[in-house]
Amino acid sequence: PKDQAKKEIEKALRNGDEEKAKRLAKKYGISDDDWKELKKRVS
């Protein structure tokens, strides 16, 4: 599910692991808009 994916990506971003977050986003098909939203929430 997308919500689970977003949680994992957000966690990776919080850990400062943007490479992992990007890989997860690609793997789960997270859209650019969702990606920006996640980045905003974390920063």
Rank of each mutant, 00 (worst) to 15 (best):
N15Y: 07
K22P: 00
S43G: 12
D17N: 09
D34P: 01
K11E: 14
E37S: 05
V42A: 10
D33G: 06
K7S: 10
A25Y: 04
D33M: 07
K20E: 15
W35V: 06
Y28L: 05
R23N: 09
R23K: 12
D17M: 07
K2M: 15
G16F: 04
K11M: 15
R23M: 14
V42T: 07
K40Q: 13
Q4V: 11
D32P: 08
A12T: 03
Y28K: 02
N15K: 09
I30W: 07
E19V: 11
W35G: 00
E37N: 06
W35I: 06
K22N: 04
Q4C: 15
K7A: 13
E8N: 05
K39S: 04
I30P: 00
K2L: 15
L24S: 01
A25L: 03
G16Y: 04
D3V: 09
R41Q: 12
K39M: 11
K26W: 08
W35T: 01
K6L: 15
D32C: 14
K20D: 07
Y28N: 04
G29Q: 10
D32T: 06
E19N: 09
K6N: 07
K2C: 14
K7L: 14
L24N: 01
I9D: 00
R14A: 05
A5P: 05
V42F: 11
D17E: 10
K7C: 13
W35D: 00
E19R: 11
A21T: 01
S43P: 07
K40N: 14
A21N: 00
N15Q: 13
A21Q: 00
D17W: 11
P1S: 13
R23I: 11
I30Y: 06
G16V: 02
A5V: 11
D32N: 07
A5W: 14
W35P: 00
R14D: 02
G16M: 04
D32G: 07
K20R: 12
S31I: 03
A21I: 01
K6P: 03
K6D: 04
S43Y: 14
K11Q: 15
E19Y: 09
E10F: 12
D17R: 05
L24C: 02
I9M: 03
Q4D: 12
D3L: 10
K22C: 13
K22S: 06
E8A: 09
D17I: 02
R14I: 06
R41S: 10
V42L: 10
K11F: 10
S31W: 02
K39I: 14
G29E: 07
N15H: 10
E18Q: 06
R41C: 05
L24Q: 01
K26R: 13
W35N: 01
E10H: 04
P1V: 13
N15A: 14
R41F: 08
K2S: 14
D33Y: 05
A21F: 01
E19L: 10
Q4L: 13
Y28G: 02
L24A: 02
E37V: 04
K11R: 14
L38H: 01
E18D: 06
V42P: 03
E37D: 06
A5R: 08
Q4S: 10
K26I: 14
K39Q: 10
K27P: 01
K2R: 11
R14E: 04
A12I: 06
S43C: 12
E8R: 08
G16T: 02
N15D: 15
D17V: 02
Q4A: 13
K22Q: 09
K22R: 14
V42S: 05
S43D: 15
E8S: 05
E37F: 05
K6E: 10
K39P: 02
K40P: 02
D34A: 07
R23F: 13
R23L: 14
K27C: 14
R23D: 09
K7Y: 11
D3I: 10
K7D: 10
L38R: 00
K7M: 13
K39L: 15
L13N: 00
K40E: 15
K26Q: 11
D3R: 08
D32H: 07
K26P: 00
R14L: 08
Q4P: 06
D34T: 06
E10V: 13
A12G: 01
E8K: 06
D3C: 08
V42M: 07
N15I: 09
P1D: 14
Y28W: 08
S31N: 07
E10I: 15
A25R: 08
S31R: 02
D33R: 07
R41W: 07
K27R: 11
I9N: 00
K20T: 13
A21M: 01
K26E: 08
D34V: 07
L38A: 02
K20L: 15
V42K: 03
